[in-house]
Nucleic acid binder design. Structure first.
Length: 913
RNA sequence: GGGAGAUUAGCUCAGCUGGUUCAGAGCAUCUGCCUUACAAGCAGAGGGUCACUGGUUCGAACCCAGUAUCUCCCA
């Protein structure tokens, strides 16, 4: 039966994925085996697969498949995240297209649209993961907003509230004017932006007579124009700001009390230009004398630092912005204008009245919303917060003590720095898509925290003495009445407030804290995620794990790199530099893409992705395919003896040696190195050497022993490859030549090979054989002799190496017609050496004597230089005294070696003359 | 502004405790081959002052200090 010359993945991938599903190989149920568990970092429910997911999930699948083959009960839990801001933004945009404004919808109506959207697009990404070959236990698919998981979120909120770890307060938050919601610090991305620095003049109120002449000289420039009406002034001060539109919200001007230039301003008042509101000059060492003019406008409502300054100096907070970033009535002027338009207009107005001194270009860091990319507005608002410092401490310990390992370790520092400087977590979001905060408001009373309205009503009764004293009838009346007026908090919780429970909630660890699943699978083993969410998510899962389970949620955290394009840019939709993973799979096959991803991705380093890696992966699959075609085509002759014992023994050792390496790389989570180890084992050792050694001559049969050994090696190789290349390995596994397979006898659950013993002798011998073969091929190449032309080879064995045993192998691979042993140099032959042994290939055409002399001389020169450096070391007393004995011995051996080689080469040179 | 890390072949990266694993791998390049498993291939070859400057040491890609450049995190 002939097989196609190239491997075509499409046909096999669907077939085997379906088969695996049918036979429930991905299914995991607790049993007596050791569990191996990974919970997927849940992708956004409405998202589509991008290269980051690709990398991430390939790694998880490699780990899970290997564990499964090692006989562990491997459980990979998939699922999706409701991603409140991102999803809500998409739904709002979709509605807008249909001409529907979110503001006109009720919460219920909006949510029904949102669920409709989720049902339509949700889960696409999980289907895409199947294409990649992800062996998730799909029976366990969870969603962070499904009923059970939401209940867990609400319960933990209540739990933490009761513990005093959740509070409500007015704080500066990062406001996203586009999403119209607060976002956490971690969701703000800072970017350097070209801005303008506006120098604005504030007139100083003349309340203490004329200024002294010396003060004028010192720094105050007298106002040159007097267009501001109303009040008498005595000059002005200048403030530098990037945000002129916020001057209407100014509460003070601050100077550094040590600033020599501004001593005269102490206790003065100034007027805000355009609106002429009077504000005081205050003093604080916070002000940087070097920056701008040294006068700082203090705008507590619109800047975090100013807010702190305002609190310290008891300044009023004047918030002039609406939640969509437009100016409100408090701004007095430009009401209703967008903040950025207002900025330009204010600048122009200031210029018109002569209050704009100058404008400079200026670079500064501005925060942008991760989800909507809108410029973040620091804004004072009433939000819910979760206290972090208490929870951070144990979470830090897990990592510092090594109970949780971060891979690579360099992230420990980053982690520690963050955990030691942790700030409270703003957990409320002004959105509807998410878990609604279980806080209930009744009239002007403090909010009640309760799971349901009914419970909230009971709490209202219980916490008030008068209500408690009411008769049952009275209570019933109260309940009835209050239920009309009681209102639940409109906000929902931050998405991360549900994802931090993920490793527990997917096993129903909250709903049913002692169930078989959570007891068996938790703590999970490895978490594979991006370093970007080390704090968002990983740190908080550790906190939650400790808080709610008293245990770390996982043992190892593998932090992948960011997928960039080959010139180092982050892959993004807007740049259009991100290939569609599904198209890549179609082009190169899932196995090819998986290999391609991992070839270029050392742990923790960003990877410069290029399609050519996938090509390499595809080529590798094809190589395996063709190796199979070769072996598959062999006819067996039962009567033949085994001529390949040496080759078989060698590969047996080589396999074990390579496997030990591969295992050590796996242990260190160096997956790309493990893969490269397998790649070389397959391509170089198995295909290029082993198969070439044992393959019978064209159309000749093979002996049964060689056939069996070769197939056995092949099977073991398929097993090693399977975690990386699940499809092609499964396909080949079921080929007839391997014998009959039961329906459950699949590569996916085949027993992972263990390293055997390594015969160092055999490895060493083969090194010499390989060297001789390469040298002969090299001679052919440089002399332009066809590989088809058989050559004679004369051996002058100066060492104790017994070449006789190797001759058949050398003869076959180097195409040698006849061997001879000689005591003398063979004149007029091509020469090479391995170690101190000399080899001669007598050639029909005479060799170029001059070229040969040059070559020999060069080699002698090199060796002499080498010898000099060795001898320099050996004659250095301090070296001989201080260096380790083995190092010194080594140098002695090098010396002897070099000497004898030089001698032989010099003899050759003489023979030429 | 503070912190972390990086700089090794054209590219992507290994290089552990300083010494034959010491200058390596894969890809790319070049040369020759359509050799009956594979041209998505085979055989062979050429590529590097280990960012720079000093220091420690018998000995430095590796340890130390400084400089330059880059990346990331935090303000």
């Amino acid at each position: 039966m002939s097989i196609a010359k190239t491997y075509s993945p499409k046909e096999t991938e669907d077939k085997w994925y379906k088969y695996w599903l049918e036979k429930e190989f991905f299914r995991s149920i607790p049993d007596e085996r050791e569990p191996y568990t990974i919970v997927i970092p849940p992708p956004n429910v409405t998202g589509v697969l991008h290269m980051g997911h690709m990398l991430n999930n390939t790694i998880q699948d490699v780990l899970i498949r290997r564990a499964r083959m090692q006989g562990k009960n491997a459980c990979w839990v998939p699922g999706t995240d409701h991603a409140s801001i991102a999803t809500e933004a998409k739904v709002v945009a979709m509605l807008k297209e249909q001409g529907i404004d979110k503001k006109e919808l009720s919460r219920e109506a909006f949510l029904s649209y949102a669920y409709e959207w989720k049902d339509k697009y949700g889960g696409i990404i999980l289907k895409q993961l199947e294409k990649l070959g992800a062996s998730c236990d799909w029976h366990r698919t969870r969603f962070t907003m499904e009923a059970d998981l939401s209940e867990a979120v609400i319960d933990t909120f209540i739990h933490l509230y009761k513990k005093g770890l959740i509070y409500r307060g007015v704080r500066m938050v990062n406001w996203d004017p586009q999403g119209k919601t607060a976002v956490s610090d971690e969701e703000v991305i800072r970017r350097e932006v070209n801005q303008k620095l506006y120098y604005i003049r504030y007139e100083i109120k003349a309340d203490s007579g004329e200024l002294k002449a010396e003060e004028k000289v010192k720094g105050i420039q007298l106002a040159q124009d007097r267009q501001s009406p109303s009040v008498a002034t005595s000059g002005y001060l200048t403030v530098a700001t990037t945000r002129p539109e916020t001057i209407m919200a100014d509460a003070a001007i601050c100077i550094n009390p040590n600033d020599e230039r501004y001593q005269h301003l102490k206790g003065k008042k100034v007027f805000i230009p355009l609106i002429n509101r009077e504000i005081p000059v205050i003093e604080d060492e916070y002000v940087d004398v070097e920056f701008g003019t040294g006068c700082l406008k203090v705008t507590p409502a619109h800047d975090l630092n100013d807010y702190a300054l305002g609190v310290k100096h008891n300044l009023p907070v004047i918030d002039i912005l609406n939640n969509d970033g437009t100016l409100n009535e408090l701004a007095v002027i430009l009401v209703g204008e967008d903040r950025f338009i207002a900025r330009k207009k204010v600048a122009k107005m200031l210029e018109e009245v002569g209050h704009l001194e100058k404008v400079e270009d200026y670079k500064s860091q501005i925060g942008f919303s991760e989800r909507t990319d809108a410029a973040i507005e620091p804004r004072l608002s009433l939000q819910w917060f979760c206290k972090m410092d208490e929870m951070a401490k144990p979470a830090l310990e897990y990592v510092l003590t090594g109970e949780i390992k971060l891979i690579p370790e360099k992230f420990i520092n980053t982690y520690r720095h963050w955990m030691e400087n942790v700030k409270d977590w703003c957990i409320s979001r002004q959105l509807w898509w998410g878990q609604q905060i279980p806080a209930w408001y009744f009239q002007h009373e403090a909010p009640v925290i309760a799971k349901t309205k009914a419970e909230a009503l009971e709490e209202l009764i219980n916490r008030d003495e008068n209500r408690r004293k009411m008769s049952e009838n009275g209570k019933a009346g109260f309940r009835k009445q209050a239920s009309e007026f009681i209102r639940q908090d409109e906000d929902v919780l931050d998405t991360w407030f549900s994802s931090w429970l993920w490793p527990m909630s997917v096993f129903d660890g909250f709903k049913d804290p002692n169930n078989a699943d959570i007891n068996y699978y938790y703590p999970t083993n490895d978490l594979v995620t991006a370093p970007e969410i080390l704090f968002f998510w990983v740190a908080r899962m550790i906190m939650a794990g400790h808080e709610f389970k008293g245990q770390a949620p996982f043992k190892n955290v593998y932090l992948t790199g960011i997928v960039r394009d080959k010139i180092g840019r982050k892959m993004s939709k807007s740049l259009g530099n991100s290939p569609d993973p599904i198209q890549l799979i179609e082009k190169y096959g899932a196995d090819g893409v998986r290999v391609g991803m991992l070839l270029c991705s050392p742990a923790g380093n960003d990877l410069m992705f290029d399609e050519s890696y996938c090509e390499q992966g595809r080529n590798f699959a094809n190589k395996i395919w063709n190796a199979f075609r070769l072996v598959n085509g062999w006819e067996i002759d039962q009567s033949l003896p085994n001529p390949n014992e040496m080759a078989i023994n060698w590969f047996e050792s080589e396999f074990s040696r390579a496997l030990a390496d591969i295992e050590s790389n796996y242990k260190q989570y160096r997956l790309s190195e493990a893969l490269m180890g397998i790649y070389k084992l397959v391509w170089d050792d198995y295909c290029s050497w082993y198969l070439e050694m044992v393959k019978p001559a064209y159309q000749q049969p093979v002996d049964p022993a060689t056939h069996a050994a070769t197939l056995n090696f092949f099977e073991r190789i398929l097993k090693l490859l399977h975690p990386f290349m699940p499809f092609i390995t499964e396909e080949l596994w079921h080929e007839e030549v391997f014998g009959p397979r039961g329906e459950m006898d699949c590569c996916i659950v085949a027993e992972y090979p263990a390293p055997g013993t390594v015969d160092q002798q055999s490895l060493k011998a083969m090194e010499i054989v390989k060297q001789v073969i390469s040298e002969v091929r090299n001679v052919r190449n440089s002399k332009q002799i066809s590989p088809k032309e058989a050559l004679p080879l004369q051996i002058k064995a100066n060492s104790s190496t017994d070449f006789k045993a190797y001759l058949p192998m050398i003869g076959k691979l180097a195409n040698i017609s006849e061997f001879g042993f000689t005591e003398e140099k063979v004149p007029g032959a091509a020469v090479f050496m391995t170690g101190t042994d000399e080899f001669f290939i007598p050639l029909a055409d005479n060799i170029d004597v001059d070229a040969e002399r040059d070559r020999l001389q060069k080699e002698i020169e090199y060796l002499k230089g080498f010898l000099r450096s060795v001898e320099a070391k050996l004659s250095n007393e301090r070296f001989v005294q201080n260096a380790k004995a083995e190092v010194v011995d080594n140098e002695r051996r090098k010396q002897e070696d070099a000497c004898s080689k030089i001698r032989i080469l010099e003899e050759s040179l003489e023979a030429l003359a």
